[in-house]
Write a protein that binds this DNA or RNA. Structure first.
Lengths: 362, 362
DNA sequence: CTGTTAGCGCTTTCAG
DNA sequence: CTGAAAGCGCTAACAG
């Protein structure tokens, strides 16, 4: 029977009064610290039970300085990739008694800065962030958090200029492996979907890489992997085969359509995102082409759908849950007193071979 | 240049000292309340800037009693449906200056109870929950929150016995409409995937409904919609056509396989979940059947994938983002002082007709 | 308009 | 082992 003192539940003082003990004794038993005799302990517990006492975590955090809360900043909660990652974070955090506050930035750096500030204000114990920052300068907000004693671990995206713990996958190797599979099947005209979001396609390979370096880390790495594979096979780089422009499914449709209309059209497409794959599939249909006969396909981010497509799609599966879980573990360890290793933890993505790759038509 | 006083940033007292004003004056300008002369205001702002001051939201919440934080409890963050809903909540909450704490229950009522307690402890201002509770008794934790002055709005799942604001979709009508489309195409043997998760299929229609009522609200509603459509068309109910057992893709494969092997096999399948659809697709393939010629298909929860399947799938699209946004708006309005309407807000799902429905083979 | 003074609910010395 | 008292950083009367 909760005391209806205005609104919020009973305080520790009320419990102490009810139990007929000092405030500190009640606090000690309820807070689970310090010594208290079994008898008093029982009385306090009974009183708390009776009043329906629930500790005020805010007040507790104020005195102790720790909130048992992790802040997680992702690009988009609505994206299954981040949703899965979040689940990993949240599962392991909760298992260790930590709660999670999630903030979404939609790839805007200003939103990310605001998010970090919110987390600082709320005095979270640590932060996990899939940052859009590219260099030291853009990472001032992250350094600010660290200066305030809030450990930060990067996830999904490393910031090369920053000496921080980062949990990522081997984007470059994964992309290279996928493209190698395409090349091994005989393809030499391989489209790359999700190049740098610049208006005009950079003319040279050098400029293309530079443009990618000015954008999302993962995308840049994947582009490099694509180029690696091309180089190894001595296939010349053709800027017309990489999609540029806004990263939307719509744009993919027109860009892949364009690549399909080239005199020496692409015979394979490698997609670095789910939307890239669905867009490519659309473009194929519009062109009256089918896979894998007319065009071979490999994409990033495996899903139940990819497996039930007909034919089923060869995809790269990222260890999403583990990515989040690992980030949480690294952070929690630091909070537990471990010295930050400030190293890059690279998990391996896995290429799931199915049936969307076949040799090019003769 | 932040003062490196141990760890956490500077306090309002330090800012006041730096600016040479009283603590309250600093608090007033930094907190944005009360009057303060332009000159002092400027001095305080400058001092705050210089010291890198950030308000301690915990301390603020302690005095004001409000946290500007919403708690959201969903069944599974990893599920795209909830991820989208969360995005809706989070977008509108942030727009009104509220942060969001997300907790996932994985459909376990005990986890839900724990989650509510965490939110009470953290003194969130309000709670949005996709509850697994079925009746009054199972909702004690929700009532406890309300007793403590924390408004609760239900989302996705109503609790019939509870007189609370609830934002849901018209599951029953949506299901009925889908099944009607199947019937209109000439089908009479229509499978229903994701019946109640009981071990043995209830023999009678009555028991089937009862079993559903003992489980997830949305599933029960969808089953009722299915039955509605059958009734209207005077199609007898056949318990062998509804899947029972664990709600996993694996199970769907075997159950649909079973329905496909029946002497008078199903010629259409209606799926109430994404996994139901992918599982059904698998089952079809295993049976060497294809859609829509051999079996017509309609499922819940449209996605980019459904549209690029070949043929593209007819699906029910839930207004996921709006579901979350609306729930947030209802809650925020109550927090803003509005009297809780305690009504059910029903959004309409939309049937997206594509090409997975054809008449049954003669 | 500004500064002083109490708290918010909890933890944490520090005597007893 | 227990209780009194101080303090976490901020807001909120209340005098000046």
């Amino acid at each position: 029977m909760p005391t209806d003192r205005g609104q919020a539940g009973p305080t520790i003082s009320e419990v102490a009064a009810e139990a007929g003990v000092g405030r500190a004794t009640a606090a000690r038993t309820l807070g689970g610290y310090g010594y208290v005799s079994p008898e008093l302990r029982a009385r306090v517990l009974a009183a708390a039970e009776k009043l329906g006492y629930r500790a005020n975590a805010l007040a507790r955090s104020m005195s102790t300085g720790v909130s048992h809360t992790l802040g997680v900043i992702v690009a988009d909660i609505g994206n299954p990739f981040f949703a899965g990652l979040l689940r990993g974070v949240s599962d392991t955090a909760r298992a260790r008694g930590f709660d999670v506050i999630v903030l979404s930035t939609y790839e805007k750096l200003e939103e990310e800065v605001a998010a970090v500030n919110v987390l600082i204000d709320k005095r979270v114990d640590g932060v996990i962030v899939a940052s859009a920052a590219l260099d030291r300068e853009q990472s001032a907000h992250l350094m600010a958090a660290i200066d305030r004693g809030i450990p930060v671990v990067l996830v999904d995206r490393a910031v090369s200029a920053l000496d921080l713990d980062a949990v990522v996958i081997d984007n470059r190797d994964a992309a290279r492996e996928a493209v190698e599979v395409l090349i091994a099947a005989g393809h030499r005209r391989i489209g790359f979907v999700w190049g740098p979001p610049v208006a005009e396609a950079p003319a040279t390979r050098r400029e293309m890489v530079a443009a990618a370096a000015r954008n999302l880390w993962t995308d840049g790495e994947r582009l490099r992997g694509y180029l690696d594979a091309l180089d190894d096979a001595h296939i010349p780089f053709d800027p017309r085969l990489v999609m540029v422009g806004p990263k939307t499914e719509e744009r993919v449709v027109t860009e892949v359509g364009r690549m399909l209309a080239l005199p020496d059209r692409v015979t394979a497409v490698f997609c670095t995102e789910t939307d890239g794959m669905t867009g490519s599939l659309r473009a194929l249909r519009q062109a009256g082409l089918s896979y894998p006969e007319d065009v071979a396909l490999i994409g990033f981010d495996d899903s139940a759908w990819a497996a039930v497509m007909d034919p089923p799609l060869t995809m790269i599966a990222q260890p999403v849950h583990e990515l989040g879980a690992r980030a949480a573990r690294v952070l929690l360890d630091v909070l537990g007193g471990a010295e930050p290793a400030r190293e890059r933890h690279t998990l391996r993505a896995r290429l799931v071979q199915r049936s969307s790759v076949a040799p090019p038509r003769p």
